[in-house]
């Protein structure tokens, strides 16, 4: 019975959203210039953020899972911090780091790079919040797999780089894909950090969640239509990710 209630808690709002959709106007609402700009921007920035997460996250996960240095164990909670931090707090922290009067902001300004209010800021915010998801999923996969295969390869005479390229990464590939898909989904849904740090301008920083937030002020039908779009994308992403975790 409690399980049924839990399912209801999740499904009921989705059903409510579906009943609220103006199906006749849906195509027009989804293809308006503002909607297309937001969708294009969301997909581009989330893809870039996922790539950034992979570039930084895979080495991080490897270090966290395999390192025997004590300091690394202490660093782990901080690496996972963005996962539990309220996104708007993450946005404020990023602002005071990369903003004009921030810690590193002055240096970037001197180099002629303005980060705040740019698409770069959006990618930065999304990477910040999505990175722990990738690192976490990868690290747990690494721990489960154990160093067995790598040790065998090493005893057979393979150099560490060869072990990494031919053993570690191929066995990790399913976990990397799952982690990347989760990171992409998180980046796509990012709102609090984006609106605080990057601002909101059509085509530059107004991602799909920000567009929904704005549209609900004057055009609830458009907001519902775009919400439905995000739900469909999210369901597709989750379906893709869990198919790899729980193959049929």
């Amino acid at each position: 019975m409690p399980g049924g209630l839990g399912a209801l808690l999740i499904l009921a709002p989705l059903v409510a959203l579906l009943t609220r959709v103006d199906w006749a106007a849906l195509p027009a609402l989804l293809t308006s210039p503002a909607s297309l700009a937001a969708l294009g921007l969301s997909l581009r920035t989330s893809a870039l953020a996922t790539v950034a997460c992979l570039i930084v996250g895979v080495p991080m996960a490897l270090v966290l899972a395999r390192s025997r240095v004590r300091l690394v164990a202490w660093l782990r909670p901080f690496v996972l911090l963005p996962l539990v931090l309220p996104p708007v707090v993450a946005g404020i922290a990023l602002l005071y780091t990369f903003g004009r009067r921030g810690l590193l902001g002055g240096t970037f300004e001197a180099l002629g790079l303005q980060i705040a209010f740019s698409t770069t800021a959006v990618v930065l915010a999304q990477t910040f919040v999505a990175l722990p998801l990738l690192v976490l999923s990868l690290e747990s996969a690494l721990r489960t797999l154990g160093p067995g295969y790598e040790d065998v390869a090493a005893t057979l005479g393979a150099r560490p780089t060869l072990v990494l390229a031919r053993v570690t990464i191929p066995t990790l590939l399913p976990a990397v894909v799952t982690g990347a898909v989760l990171a992409f989904a998180r980046a796509l849904g990012e709102f609090g950090a984006t609106i605080t740090f990057a601002g909101s301008l059509q085509g530059v920083t107004r991602t799909l969640p920000l567009e929904i937030y704005l549209q609900r002020e004057t055009d609830p039908d458009a907001a519902v239509a775009l919400s439905l779009l995000l739900v469909v994308v999210a369901v597709a992403v989750i379906g893709l990710a869990t198919r790899r975790i729980f193959p049929a």
């Binding site: 209010f117 609106i195 601002g199 909101s200 301008l201 920083t205 107004r206 937030y213 002020e217």
Partner: peptide, 11 residues
Amino acid sequence: AADSEESAVAD
């Protein structure tokens, strides 16, 4: 030439 269009004047 706006760099950001906010949803609330407080922002």
